[in-house]
Simulated scan of single mutants.
Amino acid sequence: MPDTPPIFDGHNDALLALRREDETVSDFLAGRDTGDLDLPRAREGGLAAGFFALFVPSGPEFSASDDANRTETDDGYRIERPPPLAGPYARSVVGEMLDAVDELATDDRVRVCRDVDDVRACISGDELGVVVHFEGAEAIRPDCSNFGDYYDRGLRSLGLAWSRPTAFADGVPFRYPSSPDVGGGLTDAGRRLVRRCNDRGVLVDCAHLTAAGFWDVHEVSSAPTVVSHSGAHEVCPLSRNLTDEQLDAVADTGGLVGLTFGASALRPDGGRDPDAPLSVAVEHVDYLVDRMGIDHVALGSDFDGATTLAPLGDATALPDLLRALREAGYSERDIEKIAHGNWLRVLSATW
Rank of each mutant, 00 (worst) to 15 (best):
D3T: 13
F8W: 05
N12E: 08
A14L: 05
V25P: 00
S26E: 15
L39R: 09
A42T: 07
G45A: 06
F51Y: 10
S65Q: 14
D67K: 15
D74K: 11
V93E: 03
A100C: 14
D107P: 05
R109Y: 04
V112Q: 10
R114A: 15
A121N: 10
C122G: 06
L128D: 05
V131N: 07
E138L: 03
I140Q: 02
S145H: 13
G148T: 14
R156K: 15
A167E: 14
P173M: 15
S179A: 13
P180R: 08
G183N: 08
G185F: 05
D188N: 14
G201W: 02
A212N: 09
A212V: 06
G213K: 08
P224A: 12
T243C: 06
D248I: 04
V250R: 00
T253I: 07
G254I: 00
V257C: 11
S264V: 06
R267Q: 05
D269M: 02
P274N: 02
P277C: 01
P277E: 01
V280R: 00
V280W: 00
A281P: 00
V282L: 04
D295I: 01
A298L: 11
L299W: 00
D302V: 03
D304Q: 06
T307S: 13
D320H: 12
L325W: 02
E327H: 12
E327G: 07
G329V: 11
E332H: 13
A339V: 03
G341L: 03
L344K: 13
R345G: 10
T350M: 10
